[in-house]
Design a protein around this nucleic acid. Sequence first.
DNA 1: CATATTCCTTACGTTAAGGTCAAGTAAAAA
DNA 2: TTTTTACTTGACCTTAACGTAAGGAATATG
Lengths: 131, 131
Amino acid sequence: MNSKNTKSVQIGELAKRLGITTRTIRYYEEIGLMGPPERLGGGTRTFNKEDILRLKFILKLKELGISLKEMQELAEHFDIHQQEFDTITPKLIEILDMHISKVDEKIANLSSLRNEIVEYRVRIMDILNSK
Amino acid sequence: MNSKNTKSVQIGELAKRLGITTRTIRYYEEIGLMGPPERLGGGTRTFNKEDILRLKFILKLKELGISLKEMQELAEHFDIHQQEFDTITPKLIEILDMHISKVDEKIANLSSLRNEIVEYRVRIMDILNSK
DNA sequence: CATATTCCTTACGTTAAGGTCAAGTAAAAA
DNA sequence: TTTTTACTTGACCTTAACGTAAGGAATATG
């Protein structure tokens, strides 16, 4: 079973739990989003509760459409890195607000795009019908 | 001036007119969207009225959010390739309709994403305020 | 202990739509 | 004619977020 840490998990198990691949987890570590986890004697990664929380947080932000690069910038500002992971600062609010605006903009763009397509469609239909 | 064709243009001029780069035009030819244009003695590409219309059409569809790959499929179905470029068939209508649905879906997704972000934001604000 | 499973690192592949040289010709202008 | 542009092909580069081996070591199971 487990020797020192009561609730540590290996990478495969963790990936399965979260519905992602091991590659994804290693990748997040690779680009500095996850910070080096503890390792077993042989080098096998071990993730504790905190690591898991952080990973879930990352996945949540990703779900919200925030890119990994943006998360890196986020991590620069207030340190997700240094255990103060749950000390959420106004900077996050700021970023979320920016994201809301971005989303609003995208919606607006898509709406006018939709109109254009519909118009174009109408014109084509007219041509077809006038033959 | 011009010897045989009255209104033929070279690639640089055409690119400038349409606000794109020469690379783009060559690329469209490369992937078969444009079909081989006529050439001068030395190999310089020459684009006639028809070529220009086709290119404009491609750019229009691109503006509408249709990918180059989709245009290729489009070209398979009814031949943009063989001068019947302006014989618009119902297949184009079909594709435009598909696109309208896609756009609608994207809008819906972004809307619920927006809600989620706002909710998340509210929760964070609550945490900050309760401190 | 042997085998099966999981894990490790390294590193190239993937997608879209071109961008960016580089080396070499052709055409247009002076 | 010389110089300056413009054009040619070929080939490697770019971004995001991983996918997918390859080859080897470690852990778990019978």
